[in-house]
Simulated assay, not measured.
Amino acid sequence: MNNTKYESIIIGAAQGIGETLARRLARRGTLLIVDVNAGANDALAVSLRDEGHRVDARTLDITDTAGVAELVQEAGAPRYLALVAGIFAASPSLESSPSQFESIFAVNTIGIYDVARQFAAVMATSGGGAICAIGSIAARMPRMRQAAYSASKAAMRQALRVLAMEVIADGVRINFVAPGPTVTPMVRALAADHTGVDLAAGESEAFRPRIPDGRLAETDDIAAAMEFLLSDQSAHIVMHDLFVDGGESLGI
């Protein structure tokens, strides 16, 4: 049974990579944009509708399991689901408390996994679809002062890979895009935490390698990669973690 109401749904659409991706996916068909920031999300929806696109907006905190279930029931099975929501915090590992881990994992790991599993269940009975989640090169490349964030992204990646193995037979593909430093509000927070460090040039004391491409990513660099994985052009790609980092990870 086909239960498709929206061509695409973006979770975490109000700013940064999510907003840029919304402007791309809005050109492809009906779009639902979801974010915890109601004001910014609604303003984006108005902007996209003014451009002639068919866009609806919903407010959601993805740590609210009942709220996620309500969204899935209302929205049905999209063909494409983008999981962009996430939070960032940094502190020395010796000062990173269990409560900091819990708050970051609640969004980046448990919340993202819950959205993915609930939509994947509907997709599996509605003809399949594609899911793409924003990971991070920090999931495989340790970052100073980012124990909780790095661990949350690594755990999300592995949990969704297991989910991917279980739903691919039903036509549901799950992949990841792992950005390096990108010009977003989250990376501005990272830059503030690494005062005086040129993120593109690297810094030995912070164990940050240079970016061979010589620049930070723009949000469109990441959104373009996500759009590819959320398309039929990537029909035989499953459980892939696509690094978009200007070569910072050296292909590891």
Rank of each mutant, 00 (worst) to 15 (best):
L199A: 06
G39W: 06
G12F: 06
N175I: 13
A85L: 10
D232M: 13
E70M: 12
S234Q: 00
N108D: 00
I237Q: 08
E203P: 01
V244S: 09
R157C: 09
L83N: 15
H194K: 13
M156G: 03
L160M: 09
E19Y: 07
E19I: 08
G247Y: 02
I174R: 02
I168Q: 10
A130H: 15
G76E: 04
P212F: 00
A217S: 13
G18C: 04
E102Y: 02
T63S: 09
G76S: 13
R49L: 07
R24I: 14
E74G: 13
L71Y: 10
G16R: 02
F101I: 09
D193H: 15
Q233Y: 13
A121S: 15
M239F: 07
G128H: 02
D221A: 06
F105V: 04
V84S: 03
L94W: 11
H194I: 12
F228D: 10
L71E: 09
G111D: 02
A69L: 10
A57I: 03
V107I: 06
A124F: 02
D220H: 11
T195D: 10
I252Q: 13
A169W: 09
I110C: 08
S150P: 00
A138E: 10
S150W: 03
F88R: 06
R161A: 14
A130T: 11
R58S: 12
M239A: 15
R28D: 04
T4F: 12
L163T: 03
F176L: 11
E102R: 04
G29S: 04
G214A: 06
S8V: 03
I131A: 09
A206E: 14
G135D: 03
A223L: 10
A189Q: 13
G16M: 00
M141I: 06
A189N: 12
Q73W: 08
N2F: 14
L160P: 03
V68I: 15
Q15H: 05
R161T: 12
L60E: 10
I237F: 05
P212S: 00
I87Y: 01
V72I: 00
P92D: 07
I222K: 05
I62E: 06
A206G: 08
